[in-house]
Design a protein around this nucleic acid. Sequence first.
DNA 1: AAAAAAC
Length: 624
Amino acid sequence: MTTSWADSVANSASETVVSDKNSLRRPTRSTYVPPHLRSRPASDTPILSGPAPERISFNGTAGGSWSSMGGSGSGSGSGGTKPELGRHNQGYGYAGARRGGGAGGWNNRSGGWNRREREVNPFGDNDETDVTDQAFSEQENSGIKFDAYEDIPVETSGENVPPPVNTFAEIDLGELLNQNIRRCKYVKPTPVQRHAIPIILGGRDLMACAQTGSGKTAAFCFPIISGIMREQYVQRPRVARMIYPLALILSPTRELSCQIHEEAKKFSYQTGVKVVVAYGGAPINQQLRELERGVDILVATPGRLVDLLERARVSLQMIRYLALDEADRMLDMGFEPQIRKIVEQMDMPDHGMRQTMLFSATFPREIQRLASDFLSKYIFLAVGRVGSSTDLIVQRVEFVQESDKRSHLMDLLHAQRENGTHGKQTLTLVFVETKKGADSLEHWLCINGFPATTIHGDRTQQERELALRSFKSGKTPILVATDVAARGLDIPHVAHVVNFDLPNDIDDYVHRIGRTGRAGKTGLATAFFNESNLSLARSLAELMQEASQEVPVWLTRYASRASYGGSKNRRYGGGRFGGRDFRREGSLGRNLDHYGGGGVNSGSVYGVPGNYGGYAPGVASAWD
DNA sequence: AAAAAAC
């Protein structure tokens, strides 16, 4: 089947009806005009000020394809009738010109760019020929078979889940976005994209469990960008020096926010949708200037956003889309208050009136429960890994006493240096527990002839970014990191992840080793285990077993003995998925308020009864 | 106990 743009409009329209009831109850929010109200007289919607003929013109083409809209010109002549619109037409410059100036109504968002500003080409090419429609459809057609994806386990739950799509063409995100997808060399959607994009385009809230590197960022960016392009005549309030983004993407680290921003800029290139990033450790005035030039999608870390909100420079009143990346981290004890403040205590529209999307590779049940506060009739989606990235990562655990760790690491690095024949640097990412430990290990490596750098929260932002660049470039092929680098960061060519100090939480381990084995490449993950990691023994052994890794006998023994953290950390008892919907565990009717229930995935297979006390019998017996 | 996130 195909999902046309018209279909998705129909879908989202039926959703909007619901949220619109709310908006009528809340006149303060009338500044946003839902699509089906846009042709009504301006008196109903005082702040709406777009010229009516253009709205009619848009409605007239609503059933058509994006490309026909862009190409037809349709004589809507959006310039001129209103000074505001004229200014923006000018502001969009090249983008507007490329659309033949005919895309009436595409370019009148008040978040437009300043005059004369030219969008930097994030692809670093000016060659338009390699993104022809023909090349795209050839790729699409030749890629119809997705056998490689057939085996990937997918679980969805919730009401009326929109069916997945197989191609980007089917999704029909719009020609401008399609061009960028081609420029990114994406041939076909990844599994999380196949499922998540129709769900988000259908206007639904989403909790998605998918490995980083599986295309999560695009999965939420595409529909957000597409949705904003589709939102005609969103007239934002005019309050002096107040900034009104339409979408908010939050992430737990500055570097991750930067990375999302970079990606989102590619996806939105020449669409007229403006993406801006705001994070701490960098001059706020510069970020404010950038914001003042107009923003549709704001990517931010929580602290800096709270700052901007408290200064009353940013308002969340117009937020239509809220995405939390690494959502389980965003809702853990350290972040939850800030997130609640942003989402519940400022001026953001309630859930149900905005669309909320939560993404993470891991989703502990207790976090799912917290997260459900932010969601409305959401769909839960769990997607296995692309090419099962655990297959691409060889995991090793070695028993290393604290005092031997350095020399053991040295041995590994020496061996690696000798084996690493290719001119290409093999990058090694070493995780430690503390910032102090990171500094001291880096220093020790350097004086022992291994060029290393470090990234952690005690370093200045400048130092952090320099360290990351230096590592990526191979100048310092060893990066010693705290958990700041554990999540989301896409660093190509990391061949080896060393857990010099193991984390206490198995989820953190999963995120850390996920820094290697990316983009179809193989990777190695080595962990140094000793008596201080006993609480991780069971979950680690299970995870490795699950990933068909060789589990050392001594670890198996520790695992079977360990009563430590036997429930909290135990969630990989044979589950094929990255997670499962906690709502479906309600029938177990027990322990919902405690860790004692066995963790998110301990149920592993639907319908397995007797999942209590953290010991899924079928699996635990293997260790007993 | 540590890490991250604002000035």
